[in-house]
Measured scan of single mutants.
Amino acid sequence: MKVTIEENEETGKFTIKVKTEDGEEKTIEIPKENLEEILAKLPPNVEII
């Protein structure tokens, strides 16, 4: 699983794009305050880009 994290400076939010092993892609946008909480919940086999 690969996770790409991009900061949107205009909105102050982060866009998180997840690509699973089977090629499925999902995108979510979260507030900056929630980034550490989300990262802590990721499984250890995740590659963060």
Rank of each mutant, 00 (worst) to 15 (best):
E10A: 13
G12P: 01
K17E: 05
D22C: 10
F14P: 01
G12C: 06
T20H: 11
K2Y: 10
I38L: 15
I16D: 02
I49L: 09
P43E: 07
K26S: 12
F14G: 03
L39T: 02
A40C: 12
K13Q: 11
I38A: 09
T27N: 03
E21I: 07
N45G: 14
T11P: 05
V3G: 01
F14M: 07
T20Y: 15
E7A: 10
K17V: 13
D22G: 07
E36T: 09
E10N: 08
E24K: 12
E36L: 11
G23L: 03
K17H: 14
E9V: 14
T27H: 09
E25W: 14
T15V: 12
T27K: 07
K26C: 15
T20N: 10
G23S: 02
T4Q: 06
K19Y: 15
K26Y: 15
I48C: 08
E7S: 08
I28F: 15
L42K: 01
E25G: 02
E37S: 08
L35R: 02
N45T: 09
T11H: 05
N8S: 06
I16Y: 03
T11Q: 05
I5T: 02
I28D: 02
M1L: 11
L35I: 08
K17P: 01
K17Q: 07
K32S: 06
K19F: 14
K41A: 12
A40W: 04
V3R: 00
P31E: 14
K32A: 12
G23E: 04
E7H: 13
K17S: 12
E33D: 10
E37R: 03
K2E: 06
E29S: 10
T4D: 02
K13G: 15
M1I: 14
T4P: 03
E21V: 07
K17F: 13
V18S: 01
L39R: 00
V18M: 08
K13M: 14
E33F: 08
A40M: 11
E33A: 11
E9G: 10
G12H: 03
I48V: 12
E6S: 12
I28C: 15
K19R: 12
T27S: 09
K32C: 08
K19H: 14
E24Q: 12
E9T: 13
E24A: 07
D22W: 09
T11R: 05
P43S: 06
E29T: 10
T27E: 07
K2C: 14
E21S: 10
E36D: 11
V46C: 08
L42G: 01
T4M: 05
E6A: 06
T4E: 09
E21M: 05
P31Y: 13
E9S: 14
I48T: 02
P31T: 14
T11E: 09
D22Q: 08
I38F: 15
L39W: 01
E36Q: 13
E25Y: 08
L42A: 00
I5G: 01
I30C: 09
F14N: 03
E37G: 08
E10V: 11
